[in-house]
Amino acid sequence: MPEPCQQIGIIHSPFKQKFGIPRQAGLIAEASGFVELLPPYNQPEALTGLEEFSHVWLLWQANTINRDGWKPTVRPPRLGGNQRVGVFASRSIFRPNAIGQSLVSLGDIVTTQQRCGFNVSGLDILDGTPLIDIKPYLPWADALDDAVGGFAHDKPESQLKVRVAQEAVAQLELLRERDPQMMRLIERVIEQDPRPAFHQSDRQYGISIGEYDVTFRCIELIAHITSVAQMDEKG
């Protein structure tokens, strides 16, 4: 029996809950975060040469998943949430070892006495997720022209148009002035339609992104943002 993987770091992400996380890495460039190495792996020498690469693979473990409850089949959102495929024919995190992999864009590398790690963008990972490995992306090895992607061969398109409900106009204008990057991230997350594929309705949904709680309601293919509030201002 192989030894269990060691946690080498922690992934800091704007996604505070599973609902709203992009279904694959790279879909939302604005989803940025920081990969922090933990002792004894937080040695600057371990990152020497990484700055020469544009992208990295992050291998992580979904520590919120009950691994005793895995099933041999899953329902991928790309198939409408009703059709089942084998768990090993999917990228679902509901698998025996709950190991995920994400290809992200590499930003600045930080090596100080307080912190050792690097900035990334294009995340699809829950905040606080344990990191178990890092590997540089190699274009000649990781991108194959003749590869076939099964039921998920093509990149998914944005599903919804985002509008602001009248009651939230003032809130959204303030956020756009205060933090335009966060405003764009919120819009991009909702554009991807985070609602369950098998249970879409016009009910109101809530997501937590960064320091903000956001609610929206969909009417056909238009998502109306109904409120946005900073968490520490909700009282």
Rank of each mutant, 00 (worst) to 15 (best):
I8W: 03
A143W: 13
T64G: 01
E30C: 15
F94V: 00
V164W: 03
N42E: 10
G69F: 11
D68A: 09
G86T: 02
G206N: 07
G206F: 03
S102F: 08
D232E: 09
S158P: 11
D146E: 14
D193G: 06
Y205G: 05
I65H: 07
A147E: 09
I8R: 06
N119R: 15
G81L: 12
A152T: 05
Y41K: 04
V148L: 15
F118R: 08
I11M: 07
E233W: 10
K135N: 08
A29R: 13
Q101G: 09
G206R: 15
L106P: 08
S121K: 10
W57C: 03
A62C: 08
R188K: 14
F94H: 14
V110W: 05
L106W: 00
G80T: 05
Q7A: 15
T112C: 00
K234Y: 04
H199I: 15
L58F: 10
Q24G: 03
V214K: 04
L50S: 07
V87Q: 02
Q83F: 04
P130N: 07
Q83D: 10
T112R: 02
Q61P: 00
G20T: 09
I65P: 04
E233F: 08
L126A: 02
K155D: 11
V110H: 02
V162Q: 05
F15K: 02
F34A: 03
H153K: 10
L131V: 09
A152C: 11
L38C: 07
R195C: 04
E191T: 00
F216I: 06
Q101T: 06
F15Q: 03
P196D: 11
E157K: 15
Q17N: 13
L144P: 02
